[in-house]
């Protein structure tokens, strides 16, 4: 349902994406792994239309969406790395942001509170402001916002970065449960291997602006691919240079 074909993107002399090909089937959870600065976030932002690729195609259900009006975003939910909560709005208005601007406006607050409960937050949190919450709570609010309008497609950008190990497990489990529950197609980018094992149906590894390896999660530990071996094993020695 989402397909990237030979997507290129450079910022000045820095070629971030050098021909990314990736196919994500409906209802599957794909995790993109790779070191920092390998273009994981840029790939997601290209799909969302936040960054325009230099060349290539991005197909959503067979239609190229590059440069198209952003109506297709109604089907998307996104959890940003830092939460990206609107700090001028209370928590519930953050969660219900899209609903408040839709015909479902009247029930927006109730849905927001239900979604907050779904991510393990009490209704009292609804009227607080994002700045008053801890990092883990902000992440959960971001997750509640991403799922608030029951999207078909959800992107998670580094969902566990900056969280303590326990909170990371909680967030991973929540993502897995919610994805199974609403049957959404998801792409997660992370370099946290515990996230990968908790969330992924399929794994794609991005290296030097291309998909270096792609396969089901079950193959991750058996593949002979040297890049995957080094990344999964967390080894300093290997084809991926430690100094970038």
């Amino acid at each position: 349902m989402i397909e990237l074909k030979d997507v290129h993107k450079a910022f000045g002399p820095n070629k971030v994406l050098a021909g990314v090909d990736l196919k994500v089937e409906r209802g599957t959870s794909t995790v993109i792994i790779g070191g920092s600065g390998t273009g994981k976030s840029v790939s997601l932002k290209c799909i969302l239309g936040l960054i325009r690729p230099d060349s290539g195609q991005i197909l959503l259900d067979g239609t190229d969406i590059i440069g198209q009006p952003s109506d297709f975003l109604d089907r998307f939910g996104m959890l940003f790395q830092g939460g990206a909560l609107f700090d001028s709005l209370p928590v519930w208005q953050n969660v219900a942001f899209r609903l408040l601007r839709s015909p479902r406006k009247a029930e927006a607050r109730d849905i927001a509170i239900a979604k907050l409960r779904r991510v393990g937050l009490k209704p009292e949190v609804a009227d607080r402001y994002p700045a008053e919450l801890s990092g883990g709570m902000q992440k959960r609010v971001g997750l509640a916002r991403a799922i608030a309008a029951d999207p078909d497609i959800i992107f998670f950008d580094e969902p566990t970065t900056g969280l303590d190990p326990i909170m990371a497990v909680v967030i991973n489990d929540l993502i897995r449960e919610i994805v199974t529950e609403i049957g959404a197609t998801t792409i997660t980018i992370t370099h946290d291997m515990s996230s990968v094992r908790a969330i992924a149906d399929r794994v794609a590894m991005l290296h030097a602006g291309r998909i270096q390896w792609e396969g089901p999660i079950g193959d991750l530990d058996t593949t002979e691919d040297a890049y995957i071996r080094q990344f999964v094993g967390g080894l300093a020695e290997g084809p991926i240079e430690a100094i970038r």
């Binding site: 952003s70 990206a84 601007r101």
Partner: peptide, 20 residues
């Protein structure tokens, strides 16, 4: 300062993904 901070913390990107 407000809009700049929103840009730096990806809030502007978040607005776009929320169809605004």
């Amino acid at each position: 300062a407000e809009i700049g901070t929103m840009k730096v913390t990806e809030q502007i990107d978040a607005l776009v993904t929320l169809s605004t």
